[in-house]
Design a protein around this nucleic acid. Structure first.
Length: 136
DNA sequence: CTTATGACGCGCA
DNA sequence: TTGCGCGCCATAA
């Protein structure tokens, strides 16, 4: 039901709501999350993960290279990797995941509409300009 | 107010 | 293929 969630007013809450939809064993990239959230950059998604409250599966968000992003606190990345491995996510010799196998396909279209999100528009060959993905 | 700093991503060498 | 530079923009100081 379109609850017109007050939480969505805040960028971080939009991001967290989306990240919570990523199932165990799957991963998404910061850029992917940012695009879904709308009016957001990958950098902001990363910043939001750094401040993620309990209950948000932040470990399922990695960088576009398919790796766990290194950070100041060396432990954090190790914990992330362990938690992912625990969910069945495998890393190759280069410490990268196989996106073809574990990349999250995103929430269903229905879910996006249900929660007031505008689905990302695919780049259309038509010369017509389409609107940017953004919150309702 | 200004400046510095990122859990990023993309373009280019 | 990898590495470096720059744009990005919310927060912190």
């Amino acid at each position: 039901m379109a609850t017109l969630p007050e939480e969505h007013e805040r960028l971080y809450e939009r991001i967290y709501l989306i990240v919570r939809q990523i199932p165990p064993g799957k991963v998404a990239t910061y850029g992917q999350i940012a695009e879904l959230a709308g009016d957001c950059t990958a950098r902001m998604a990363g910043y939001a993960m750094a401040a993620a409250p309990e209950g948000v599966p932040w470990q399922r968000v990695i960088n576009a290279q398919g790796k766990v992003s290194p950070r100041a606190d060396h432990w954090g990345s190790e914990v992330q990797r362990v938690r992912l491995a625990d969910e069945g996510v495998e890393f190759d010799a280069q410490d990268r995941v196989d996106f073809a196998k574990v990349r999250w396909a995103g929430p269903g279209l229905g879910w996006l509409l249900e929660h007031g999100f505008t689905p990302p528009a695919d780049p259309e060959p038509s010369g017509e300009e389409n609107v940017q993905p953004r919150m309702l």
